[in-house]
Simulated assay, not measured.
Amino acid sequence: MNKKLSIGLLMILFIFQGAFAVLGADNNKGINIKSKEFKAVASQFMCTCGCGQDHYACDMAGCKNTEAFKAELVDMMEKGMDKDEIREYYVKALGEEILTAPEKKGFSLAAWVLPFAAIGGAGTGIFFMIRKWVNKNAGRAEMVDDHQESDEVEEEILSSIIEEERKKYL
Score class of each variant (00 low, 15 high):
residue 161 I to D: 06
residue 136 K to H: 04
residue 125 G to S: 01
residue 120 G to E: 06
residue 129 M to V: 11
residue 155 E to S: 15
residue 27 N to C: 01
residue 17 Q to D: 10
residue 105 K to G: 04
residue 117 A to R: 07
residue 100 T to S: 10
residue 79 K to G: 08
residue 91 V to D: 00
residue 49 C to I: 00
residue 18 G to N: 02
residue 56 Y to C: 02
residue 166 R to N: 15
residue 55 H to P: 02
residue 147 H to E: 11
residue 50 G to A: 04
residue 50 G to I: 00
residue 34 K to P: 01
residue 78 E to P: 03
residue 88 E to M: 04
residue 119 I to N: 07
residue 59 D to L: 11
residue 94 L to R: 11
residue 27 N to T: 07
residue 64 K to W: 02
residue 39 K to D: 01
residue 164 E to K: 02
residue 20 F to H: 03
residue 20 F to C: 11
residue 8 G to P: 00
residue 111 A to Q: 09
residue 30 G to F: 09
residue 117 A to S: 05
residue 35 S to H: 10
residue 70 K to Q: 15
residue 165 E to Q: 09
residue 32 N to A: 11
residue 16 F to I: 13
residue 162 I to L: 13
residue 74 V to A: 12
residue 25 A to G: 00
residue 78 E to F: 06
residue 154 E to P: 06
residue 50 G to T: 04
residue 109 L to Y: 13
residue 149 E to Q: 12
residue 35 S to N: 10
residue 64 K to Y: 01
residue 108 S to F: 03
residue 136 K to C: 00
residue 15 I to V: 15
residue 4 K to V: 07
residue 169 Y to Q: 09
residue 36 K to P: 09
residue 83 K to M: 08
residue 67 E to Q: 14
residue 68 A to G: 09
residue 149 E to N: 09
residue 72 E to M: 09
residue 143 M to F: 03
residue 54 D to Y: 02
residue 33 I to W: 10
residue 24 G to N: 15
residue 62 G to Y: 04
residue 125 G to K: 01
residue 81 M to T: 05
residue 115 P to T: 04
residue 113 V to T: 11
residue 37 E to L: 06
residue 105 K to V: 12
residue 89 Y to W: 09
residue 142 E to N: 13
residue 77 M to H: 05
residue 40 A to S: 15
residue 114 L to F: 05
residue 122 A to S: 04
residue 73 L to H: 02
residue 63 C to S: 05
residue 42 A to E: 02
residue 170 L to I: 10
residue 152 E to M: 08
residue 27 N to S: 06
residue 61 A to W: 08
residue 21 A to D: 12
residue 15 I to L: 15
residue 116 F to H: 11
residue 34 K to R: 15
residue 48 T to Y: 04
residue 96 E to F: 10
residue 154 E to Q: 13
residue 108 S to P: 03
residue 167 K to Y: 07
residue 27 N to Q: 12
residue 103 E to I: 14
residue 3 K to S: 12
residue 17 Q to F: 14
residue 66 T to H: 03
residue 119 I to W: 00
residue 70 K to I: 01
residue 33 I to H: 08
residue 96 E to W: 03
residue 124 T to L: 13
residue 92 K to P: 00
residue 99 L to P: 03
residue 65 N to S: 07
residue 32 N to H: 12
residue 131 R to E: 00
residue 12 I to S: 14
residue 137 N to L: 10
residue 17 Q to R: 11
residue 161 I to S: 03
residue 72 E to G: 07
residue 134 V to D: 01
residue 85 E to D: 14
residue 1 M to I: 01
residue 19 A to G: 00
residue 160 S to V: 05
residue 121 G to R: 01
residue 88 E to G: 00
residue 145 D to F: 08
residue 162 I to S: 08
residue 151 D to A: 12
